[in-house]
């Protein structure tokens, strides 16, 4: 058993209709996803919007109901209803995409950051204040801001408050759902580097969800690429970026901008080549419904969704 193992996870949302509003169909947001993460590593989930990456993350932490499949965290089955989630929840936390809506606008910073502490730890008022101030200092905010409201902070500062809240209980796994995509580009790098720093300091494991391959390359040890609720490719960061196998991955990698002007021509040529290949061979990479095939291992660390015939 690994640290986090997701086995054949499915999350379907019912479509209701008809006379009695019964379930008539389902949106297969996540349709059979498996992966595992080692402790202390960062695992990236990549895909376009609607690919099911966020739903996967939210299912792991319990915000979306799991239709089928298993999620094991340190050997405990999180999908088992009898398993009282409460203690495990403490060890899994989440950083949300939009720092403007993830902090309750009517609460002061102290109430926001102390919320998890109040649920799991019995602290006196004084201890709590001290702890919150300490956490704020850790994320690079002045402890004096504990009585302010979220709207008095910038986007980057708000996301730091969100991070302070997420690490308050000393979790082992943090699910980061596009943690910087709502921030200005200039602030993104700051927050990302800071996330790396606290990862080392607290021995955190990240499930890092993003649509930005550049960021994922910078942050992650392993990457899974999702398309329409399924995996198309999975591997070490090196595998994905230097040796992409699936046409979808190739196209994503080709789309990463290269700032070196000397490579401009080469890059353009490469991109056109990939585009041509994509158009020509799209059908051989996806089944009749436009979905990916099952994953095949092509090396110890690298797996690609290819059709049976090869």
């Amino acid at each position: 058993m690994g640290f986090l193992d997701v086995e054949d996870l499915k999350v379907h949302f019912p479509i209701r209709g008809g006379l009695l509003n019964r379930k008539i169909d389902a949106v297969r947001a996540v349709d059979g996803v498996s992966f595992s993460i080692e402790q202390g590593k960062t695992y990236g989930l990549v895909g376009e919007s609607g690919s099911g990456k966020t739903t996967t993350g939210r299912a792991v932490i319990g915000l979306n109901n799991i239709t089928a499949g298993k999620v094991f965290f340190e050997g405990n089955d999180l999908t088992d209803k009898k398993n009282k989630m409460l203690d495990v929840r403490k060890d899994i936390q989440m950083i949300f995409q939009d720092p403007y809506s993830s902090l309750n606008p009517k609460k002061r910073v102290i109430d926001i950051v102390a919320e998890p502490l109040r649920n799991y730890e019995r602290l006196t008022k004084k201890e709590e204040r001290y702890k919150v101030a300490e956490l704020l200092e850790k994320v690079g905010l002045s402890p004096e801001s504990i009585l302010k409201y979220p709207h008095e902070f910038s986007g980057g500062q708000r996301q730091r408050i969100g991070i302070a809240r997420a690490i308050a209980l000393k979790p082992k796994l943090i699910i980061a759902d596009e943690p910087v995509s709502a921030l200005d580009v200039s602030v993104q790098a700051q927050v990302l580097n800071f996330m790396k720093d606290i990862q080392k300091e607290l021995n955190l494991t990240y499930l890092f969800i993003s649509h930005d391959l550049g960021i994922v390359k910078h942050m992650c040890d392993e990457i899974g690429i999702m398309y329409k609720g399924r995996y198309v490719e999975e591997g070490k960061t090196g595998d994905i970026f230097t040796n992409p196998q699936h046409i979808y991955t190739k196209r994503l990698v080709a789309a990463i901008p290269d700032i070196d002007p000397k490579n401009r021509e080469k890059q353009k040529q490469f991109r056109e080549e990939v585009q041509r290949e994509y158009e020509e061979s799209y059908e051989s990479y996806f089944n009749e419904e436009g979905l990916a095939y099952g994953l095949k291992k092509i090396s110890d660390t690298h797996a690609v969704a290819l059709p049976e015939k090869g």
């Binding site: 929840r89 993830s102 309750n104 809240r165």
Partner: peptide
Amino acid sequence: ELDYAQASKTLGTPRWKIMFGQVLPNVS
């Protein structure tokens, strides 16, 4: 549906507490 209410769930806050402690101030 807003993230702050979802966040409270991930922080282990019981539902009735989210309802009265988190959502109520926003409809006050």
